[in-house]
Amino acid sequence: MTKSVDKELLRASFKLEYPYERSPGPVIGKFFEELSNEVLVGTKNSKGEIFVPAAEFDPKDSDHLSEFVEVKKEGVVQSYTWIEKPRAHHLIKESFAFALISMDGTNSAMLHMIANCKEDELEIGKRVKVVWNEEKTKTIRDIKYFEIIDE
């Protein structure tokens, strides 16, 4: 704990940490398990709509989803935001984008990052593909980021 030298204003810097052990459960757990095998799966509802990342419940009617389908590791940028200068907690230290990416054949979008490109190469509708993290942790970070598919 460091104390401010300002006698009138006592400040103490501290770090708040919650290292909770989280159980992902059968659906999210399966999604993470497959990520660690470099496979991307989604869940399918009765109308045939597919959600990636795997949703436990249909976001529209709350139906429990348990049917898994494998999807391609490519998708389309639905929206993005370019971060020229990454800030405190951002995982990528060079310029990158957060993006909503709809994997091919799916009916929802996944929040993730896009890297290895310049801002002006990126636009809504651009096709991107998964880049895997070498070290797998069975978390959403097993996808390192997405990158633009050269076409």
Partner: peptide, 27 residues
Amino acid sequence: EKKDFFVSDISLSYQYTAGNATTRFLN
């Protein structure tokens, strides 16, 4: 049975202030 658990890395930094009254007290 905990093998599938993962640890969330929630970690935030703060500059806590004691409050005017507590500041006077601590001084």
